[in-house]
Design a binder for these strands. Structure first.
Lengths: 348, 348
DNA sequence: TATTAGCACTCAAATCTTATGAGTGCTAAC
DNA sequence: GTTAGCACTCATAAGATTTGAGTGCTAATA
């Protein structure tokens, strides 16, 4: 059954009012909106219909109505008009920084500051290639490997070695490593490549093993999905989650990057257009303890087609309009940085 | 008024029982300890005395007694026998790592895992000296500065520059920087030193300014008091803090390094012997919202006399014995690492 | 036929009432 | 100095009562 215009209007009013007050919305409240000019009895009839259709529900017999997940979904998809472009402050939120890592951390922070929800940001799934490796002697038996990856992701790795090395050796290794690894994608740095390097190097193979070991560790670390979060403690402010133990579980979940990456992974595989907003309401999250939460994510895009996600986790009863417009703005800014201003080095 | 032996015994039993159960302890409970052989009436008389002396208090008229801060203090100072060395599992908790930063993060984690409290660890206040600086060309107009500091604290800094540099230039700068800065204490890297370098360098002064700018930023960052925390969400499990908003404030405070550094600073200036345990109970913390918390810290020591702190923040009603012994163990292990095993490079 | 006024009904939340029982302080006896 | 006995206190839990917001239904109305 299609909703007629009046039902839509009423549903919209109910949800908007509920988002504002957090209290179940009664028929009289709605009938007071003077552009409606309907008595509470009529509203009641309409509400009964809306309830039968699954858009709203009564927490208990003599209470007003609150939206169901289906109701929220309809609101987000059809009823919520986004803020006019004019209204949206397009003030630049991001400072320019040179390192992808710092930039994304900043995004998470700014987003948390602007929405007062818990936020998470994933690094783009771009093909990470090595810009260069710098091996330096820390002391007689210790090396430092610095690996710089596209986007200026920097990894440091201390490598203890058995043999005493002089500067000549270190220089040689540097050249060897860079010859092979410069421009290589992190995924390509595997046993085969290492064996090739070993062959070429000849006598130094024992030390090289130790160095490779270190490099591989660093590469492995760099290759992990990076997720940055901010404002986790905002979760404590969602009253609807209720129980402190549930809240605490949720908070712990949010601090566990492993868990988060699952959460995000499920989301991807969608349309993946930059600026796309995805909203996951309540049960749609399919993660324990998140039935009372909504997640709103936006996809940002890098020039080569790599995409990343920025998003917030909040209570179902959240200001979707504001969140969506904030996310859109930030995505645009991020796209800008990646595509025009080149604040962060990309593959070019 | 001195406490006689019987009063001490009773106080100890009261506190020990309370630590276990969390319920106010009544006279009958105590009188049941058969090594005491006293009726509840007698215990009541003694309890009345102990209350008058300020060691225990009734939450309300018809309740049992719970310890006051003064009671806890007396318990910790005089009554609590620490676990026998034999009982304490001396299992090695720490993995050996080469970087101070990783080591301390690990300490915080291990401590949280073992105590189930929120933990914090400060880096030692050692004189940080530069081991070496490595400047590398990221691309035509970007440099990467890697600063390695004693203890293998590593800082990376991207430095954008206006001029296009060739490898020769970078090499020159490297030599220049290291000549001046190797072995220098971070505090010494100031305008004077930089002016001296500028004079020596001659023509490159414009670029040098940009490089110095970057180096100074990195040095500044490295010089900040590092505090590592872990297990913050354990705070949510302290039931005595009660109110979720208070808990949440406390949690936020705990995540604010600024705030934490104040908390720690107040503690220092004490005896500063390695292995020293300091216990701060309730009001002794003199930080808002921490009246219901206790903080237990231990000092660890580096060979040159630098000291750092490891500690936990928990509810007043905590297993002090266990916490103290865990802290002692970790401190010993840490001292070991710094002084014998040299897991982390020190000044040598 | 759609809308509305009227009214009985429901039920969460707040407030009050009333046990219950753990624990105390005091007193008099041992 | 210690203890038995007893009256007293008060937090907690469980019921009882009130209040009010809100509903569904029905009959009257436009």
């Amino acid at each position: 059954m299609e909703l007629d215009e009046r039902k839509k209007t009423i549903l919209k009013l109910i949800i908007a009012t509920y988002l504002e007050t957090g209290e179940p919305v009664g028929s009289r409240t709605i009938s007071k909106f003077n552009d409606l000019n309907l008595s509470s009895a009529t509203i009641r009839n309409e509400m009964a219909d809306l309830e039968e259709l699954g858009y709203i529900v009564q927490p208990h017999t003599s209470a007003g109505r609150i939206p169901t997940d289906k109701g929220y979904r309809f609101y987000v998809d059809n009823l919520m008009e986004e803020k006019e472009d004019a209204e949206v402050e397009k003030s630049t939120l991001l400072e320019r920084v040179d390192r992808m890592e710092l930039l994304l951390k900043q995004v998470a922070k700014v987003l948390a500051y602007n929405t007062n929800y818990a936020t998470l940001v994933t690094a783009p799934n771009y093909r990470k290639t090595v810009k260069f490796i710098q091996l330096s002697k820390v002391d007689e038996q210790t090396l430092l490997a610095v690996i710089v990856i596209e986007g200026n992701l920097i990894k440091n790795q201390i490598i203890p070695i058995d043999t005493i090395l002089d500067n000549e050796d270190v220089l040689k290794f540097n050249i060897l490593l860079n010859t092979f690894l410069q421009g290589a994608s992190l995924e390509d740095i595997n046993l085969e490549m290492i064996n090739a390097m070993k062959k070429q190097s000849g006598e130094y193979s024992v030390i090289l093993d130790q160095i490779f070991q270190g490099i591989i560790e660093a590469v492995h670390e760099a290759n992990e999905l990076e997720i940055y979060t901010s404002g986790a403690t905002n979760i404590l402010k969602y009253p609807e989650i209720g129980d402190i133990s549930r809240t605490s579980e949720l908070l712990e979940k949010f601090e566990d990057k492993e868990e988060l990456s699952h959460l995000i992974e499920k989301k991807t595989g969608n349309k993946e257009e930059s600026g796309d907003i995805q909203v996951y309401i309540g049960e749609e999250n399919a993660v324990q303890n998140m039935e009372d939460c909504s997640m709103v994510t936006a996809t940002y895009k890098m020039p080569e087609g790599a995409t990343g996600t920025i998003g917030i986790l909040g209570p179902k009863r959240m200001d979707y309009k504001k969140v969506v417009s904030t996310l859109k703005n930030l995505t645009i800014e991020l796209d800008d940085i990646f595509n025009k201003r080149k604040g962060v080095n990309d593959d070019g």
